[in-house]
């Protein structure tokens, strides 16, 4: 990491409309970068005039009240805080999900295995061997953006998205993994599904979302089906 090199450690900050800035961490997207994003996010929650923040993958969207902040002053504050704040390590909970890999509900397992040059079983083992960390919330309430895909399984997203009908679908896209929440088109690679799917979101529960940023998702191989 180049965290003490002032030039390469400079985050990229851009205007996002008249009342928001977006900050991109320099360097690779990894846990170290994300812990600094988390630290920045936590510090911003204590700042007056910050309307809302949007956690992303090694980036942070910061909405501000233009009556209280000028964009340039906020950008300076963000630069300073980026350098000053220690990374925020979150000791989250661990959630285990048994997965049936391959078969009809894991149609992309062969393609991903071929890409990695391994058998279906090995590809499933590589996927299940790592803990995935919730880096940021995703678009619909759910498990969020999970980081930690084995580099050998990393593929660019599909050019043409396909429909992924069932909740509980386990898929990967780039360095990210996810458990599908709602039916919809997706450009990710579907590897299988979990047999223990429970929606982690209930608007009337406290907290409404059972999982939190920093939690770890662990997949356990229940079965690997031929495709």
């Amino acid at each position: 990491m180049n965290s003490h090199d002032p030039v390469s450690d400079c985050p990229h900050i851009a205007q996002f409309g008249e009342a928001a800035l977006v900050l991109d961490a320099p360097g690779a997207m990894d846990l170290g970068a994300q812990q600094r994003i988390w630290a920045l996010d936590a510090a911003l929650k204590e700042q007056p005039g910050i309307v809302e923040t949007g956690l992303g993958m090694a980036n942070l969207l910061v909405s501000f009240d233009p009556d209280l902040w000028q964009a340039e002053a906020l950008a300076d504050w963000l630069h300073d805080a980026w350098v000053r704040l220690p990374p925020l390590a979150i000791e989250g909970r661990v959630w285990e999900f048994p997965v049936i890999y391959g078969g009809e509900r894991g149609p992309d397992l062969p393609f991903v295995a071929t890409h990695a040059g391994v058998t279906l079983e090995e590809a499933a083992r590589m996927h299940a061997a790592r803990d995935y960390i919730i880096f940021a919330p995703s678009v619909t309430p759910g498990f969020g953006y999970l980081y930690g895909v084995d580099p050998a399984l990393v593929l660019p997203r599909k050019k043409v998205p396909v429909m992924v009908p069932e909740p509980g679908t386990v898929s990967i896209g780039g360095v990210q993994a996810t458990i599908g929440m709602t039916p919809g088109p997706s450009g990710w690679y579907t590897l299988g599904y979990t047999t223990r799917f429970r929606h982690p979101f209930d608007p009337h529960a406290e907290p409404p979302l059972q999982v939190a940023v920093g939690d770890r998702i662990r997949f356990v191989i229940e079965k690997v089906l031929p495709c």
Binding site: G17, G54, G56, A58, L61, P137, S138, K159
Partner: peptide
């Protein structure tokens, strides 16, 4: 290829099709 990140209503995004898409009030959050 951008990293997934927060977006807001009003953003004009351009997916690979080349047709611009304006996110409105029920915008995606990322």
């Amino acid at each position: 290829e951008l990293r997934s990140g927060g977006i807001l209503p009003g953003v004009v995004q351009v997916p690979p099709s080349g047709d611009p898409l304006i996110q409105l009030r029920d915008a995606n959050s990322a």
